[in-house]
Simulated scan of single mutants.
Amino acid sequence: MKITKLILAAYLLTSMAACDTDKNIAMYGEDSGAVRIEAAINTAFTRSNPGAAGDQQKQFNEGDEIQLSCEDGYLNYVLAGGKWVPTDNYYLRWGAEPVTYSAFYPVVSGASTANFTLPTNQQRLENLAKADYMTCTVENVTDDGSRILRLGMNRKMAKVIMTLADVGGQGKVQGVKIGSYQGYTNGEVVSGTSLISPFITVPEGGKAGQNGCTYTAIVAPGKAGTTATFVSLNYLGEDLVLPGIPELKPAKCYEFTLKVEGSIISISEPIVSPWDSGTLPGGDAEELQLAAYYVKEQPAGNATGMDWDNAMGVDALRNSSQTLPAAILTDGVYQWTVTGTIDEFATKQAVIDAVKSFDATVGQQFINWVGENGFAVDQRGVARNVNKMQAGAYDAGL
């Protein structure tokens, strides 16, 4: 007699009896012998504290998937309506003998309970979630009468958060990347390293690349690597590197202050805390909101885009995924996202309002000099689409 059985739900409709019952059995939702799961993060389930499952269950988000395997095979469960359900017509049934189960999250290509490649692009919340690798093994399990298999998922990664400080003047930090080991192979952290493009959060009222801006990355833990790059960035046109990945432990959150002074990068001693929050996306961070940038046909000054004397060039605006990662070229114009002012395509009036907001005095003087009708015509005298203004259209002549 098999310990467990992979049941094809469609086949159950033919009234075939399972090996541990003589009764006809229905589909998963009605089968009292089906294995149902509860999953929590960094929690060891015990019979003495089964109630913890309710609160811990909230640590996963709707739509999260876990892959569960045993000697009979494997299948995926998805969290839907607050319950974990199989993603297809196959499911597991309890048997009489002990079984060892293994599980991992997230369900991505190449992942298993022993292998995981850390994604290097973590600039979006969904990418950050796909880096949050967890595993679990539950040995010699039998049904305790609840028909529930409880999975205590253990985080295998660490979270690093860096907050910019002491950035001088109107200078802007760009292209920040955080070093990490590349993941797991056969259950061990691999020795090779990669540079992670982190998730960026700009504080309310702040600007990208300036003080208070935070960079969040999920990294593979491991021993200190003295020669590997931990931080790389560009400041005032100069590429800077901070070598030395510190020793990091799984399921921990490390918060650093990142300082850039001239040509020197430095980081503080980290604040270390348990990483016991739920899976992402789930409120750990807000989507990046971009500040407005000054753009001219040709770059000026240090081309940071922080003011008219240091305006960004049009080509830099087009090519800068770090500055405008959400920019999409559509119908010859770019989407433009400015904190609290413009969402997606800008109208002529929205551009005028944004110019006013740049500087209470200079912005209005510029509008008076150009004239509001001048915003509807580019420098070649060609009429613009006043409902789809390009970022910097009031000055770039496009």
Rank of each mutant, 00 (worst) to 15 (best):
D166K: 15
N115K: 12
L151Q: 05
E344K: 15
L8M: 09
P325Y: 13
G54H: 10
S320I: 08
A26H: 07
K172P: 00
A111W: 02
A220N: 06
T347R: 08
S266I: 10
I41G: 03
T201L: 02
G187H: 07
T100I: 05
V333G: 01
Y101I: 02
A129G: 10
T347G: 08
K207M: 08
G73D: 03
S266T: 15
K207R: 15
L8N: 13
G225M: 08
D72Y: 06
A17F: 10
T135I: 15
S268N: 07
A327F: 10
Q289K: 15
D315I: 11
K58H: 09
V85Q: 08
Y90C: 01
L8Q: 11
Y235I: 06
P243C: 07
K259L: 04
R36L: 04
S109K: 09
Y133S: 06
I245C: 00
L128T: 05
N42W: 08
E255P: 00
K156Q: 15
R36E: 02
T14D: 11
V377P: 04
N89G: 12
E62H: 08
I200R: 10
A165T: 09
A360P: 00
E372W: 11
G187P: 02
Y334K: 12
G171I: 03
S277P: 00
P50E: 13
F104A: 02
N186C: 03
L398W: 12
V351Y: 05
V108I: 14
L151Y: 03
L13C: 03
W369F: 14
G206D: 01
L248T: 11
I265T: 04
T46Q: 09
K348S: 05
P299D: 14
S263V: 08
L398F: 13
G244I: 12
Y293Q: 10
A391G: 07
T337E: 01
P270S: 08
G301I: 07
D315R: 14
I148Q: 04
G171F: 10
I161H: 01
G222E: 05
L13A: 12
I218R: 03
L317I: 07
